[in-house]
Design a protein around this nucleic acid. Sequence first.
DNA 1: CAGTGGTCTAGACCACCTG
DNA 2: AGGTGGTCTAGACCACTGC
Lengths: 233, 233
Amino acid sequence: MANISWQEVRDEVLRKIEAEEWRRGELIPGEMELARKFGCARVTVNRALRQLSEEGFVNRKRRAGTRVALNRVQKATFDIPVIREEVEAAGKHYSHEIIRKQMVAPPGGFAGEMWAAEKRKLLHLRSLHYADGKPYAYEVRWVNTSTVSRIVDVDFSRISANEWLVQNIPVTSSNFAFSAIRLKKSEAKLLRAEPGDAALCVERATWNLTGPITSVRQIFKPGHTLKTGSGAS
Amino acid sequence: MANISWQEVRDEVLRKIEAEEWRRGELIPGEMELARKFGCARVTVNRALRQLSEEGFVNRKRRAGTRVALNRVQKATFDIPVIREEVEAAGKHYSHEIIRKQMVAPPGGFAGEMWAAEKRKLLHLRSLHYADGKPYAYEVRWVNTSTVSRIVDVDFSRISANEWLVQNIPVTSSNFAFSAIRLKKSEAKLLRAEPGDAALCVERATWNLTGPITSVRQIFKPGHTLKTGSGAS
DNA sequence: CAGTGGTCTAGACCACCTG
DNA sequence: AGGTGGTCTAGACCACTGC
């Protein structure tokens, strides 16, 4: 391609930032001026700068122009796979087991306020995920049966709640919280670990456009590590 | 604005997906056809679908067309702030202390392969972050002095290594790993916690265009929780 | 109120990949 | 081989906001 691509513009701008030809907080030339310099259309420069803005390298404001970001916020992005896929990606056999299934009142704690407006009872599930027959994660879940009424008829011996929801209910937003906990006796027994062991705990809440869908607390077996995909920008 | 905006196109497409008018795996109409339907330019449709593709709602391939994603991968995005800002955002007073500073050979472990090509010695730092005088996090860091030669002259009593790097060295890519550990005696003493307590451990490695910059292992005080910004898409 | 970024249009060419 | 998405151009109008 003879023409300048927006990637070329982005790379050159990024190079200038890294080489500190344009310093932190400094105003960089406007789109029209850059377009002249690069010999391309203004829209092409716009595309490049928008990308850099999304990635946090620059801040843009109408009228005020584009500035090199002062502190680029480091972002860590995790892809949260279905646990079955995570286990199978590691070359192990996946299975799961439902420990409890009942209708209960909404919980408190991490997801408490999420269910504040919800007066009906929720589907409460406790289950274990296994990798090669060994406990992998213990999961406690609440599901909004108003929004997801179909779920009460699902046969969870065939598919995990985790996976059924991912496959059947499109999600628009979600929250996560990560922490380290010490296993209680009951949790340790289920995970075949020692009480007091340190385990990674992931709490997650998901919403639809119509309202809350599910909240879940997953406790991974001691020693589990969660990694970002390599080279995330 | 009389014209159709790309956001309107995105919202309508998203609505059709959530309402399952277009089902998972299904091919949706091409850009030209959608442009006709919406009464806008093809580029506008392209902008909307590109956005949805970045957010994981659809998969796009040349020639093959655009399909509704089978399993929308759930993504969790954390903003990793400078610890000082994290502490001050909680309304507490921040301070820090350097425990050790020396030049050593590259480490093994999480960041081992990162430094594989690095034969020179690295700057090794151990430090403690405090909130209102109470230990907040213990940090073990390695810095590449080839790439970041200026750092050897920095006065770390005035600014933490964490913050100096963020302010002075633009980063292009990074990796994270989260795990739960039990505190060793020495770690527990530094954090004024009990040996064996569960603590969240964040390991991070960052790169420049010129090579590796720093790897760090941060152990947060027991009870610490890491949350995503609310409503992340 | 003037200049910046944000966006839309219409037309065009191209890279890619599947049928 | 042909249709799909990816992108560039040139021109235009608009929204926001700092001066």
